[in-house]
Simulated scan of single mutants.
Amino acid sequence: MQNIVKRALKFYDIEARRSFTTDQYELVVIELGGGRSVTLAVAISPYTGNKCYSFAPRRTEIKSVGLDRFI
């Protein structure tokens, strides 16, 4: 049985001038035109409550398996 876990991503809060890492984010796809698009991750900063954006990797999920597969 495999579980799917969101990968923690790093974000930067410009107002607070601090970075933070979280797995609590939403993915937003922005169309650039010409058939191109970019996927951004959006998270709420724990410092200011502002929305912070980060480029999301193509695969934001990590497949995890139980330890019994390695024993």
Rank of each mutant, 00 (worst) to 15 (best):
G66F: 09
Y12G: 01
K10Y: 04
V38A: 02
R58D: 01
G35C: 06
S54C: 12
R69N: 07
S64M: 04
N3Y: 11
T60Q: 04
R69E: 13
F70L: 12
M1F: 07
V5H: 10
E31C: 07
M1G: 10
R59T: 11
Y12T: 06
V29F: 00
L27T: 10
M1C: 06
L9G: 02
N3L: 08
V5A: 12
Y53L: 14
F11I: 10
C52F: 01
A56V: 02
E61F: 15
A41Q: 10
K63T: 08
Y53T: 12
D23C: 13
D23Y: 00
A8G: 14
G66A: 06
I71V: 13
V38Q: 05
S54V: 10
I30F: 01
G34V: 02
F70G: 00
T60V: 14
S37H: 12
V42I: 13
S45H: 11
D23A: 15
T21V: 13
T48D: 12
L27G: 05
G33K: 12
I62H: 07
L67Y: 03
A41R: 15
G49Y: 09
F20N: 04
T22M: 00
T22R: 00
Y53S: 14
T39W: 10
D68Q: 14
Y53P: 11
R58C: 00
R69I: 13
Y25D: 05
G35S: 08
L40Y: 08
Y53C: 11
Y53G: 11
P57W: 10
F11S: 06
G66R: 13
F11L: 11
D13N: 13
I71C: 10
Q2P: 15
T60K: 02
L27Y: 12
R58L: 04
V38H: 01
I44H: 03
D68K: 06
V42P: 05
L27R: 11
K63A: 06
Y53K: 06
Y47C: 04
Y12H: 14
D68N: 08
T60R: 05
Q24T: 13
V29L: 05
K6H: 04
E31W: 07
G34C: 01
E61D: 07
P46Y: 09
I14F: 09
Y25C: 05
V5I: 11
F70C: 01
E31V: 08
I14K: 14
E31F: 10
S19L: 14
A43L: 02
R36F: 09
I4L: 13
A8E: 09
S45A: 11
F70H: 04
Y53A: 12
N3T: 11
L9K: 03
A16L: 09
P57R: 05
R36S: 15
L67T: 14
L32N: 07
D23L: 00
G49H: 12
C52E: 03
S45T: 09
G66H: 08
V29Y: 02
A8I: 00
P46I: 03
N50S: 10
Q24P: 09
K10E: 00
F20T: 14
K63L: 14
G66W: 09
R69L: 11
A41F: 10
S45Y: 06
S64A: 02
F70T: 02
N50P: 01
T39V: 14
V5Y: 03
A16T: 04
Q24M: 03
Q2A: 14
Y47A: 04
L67H: 04
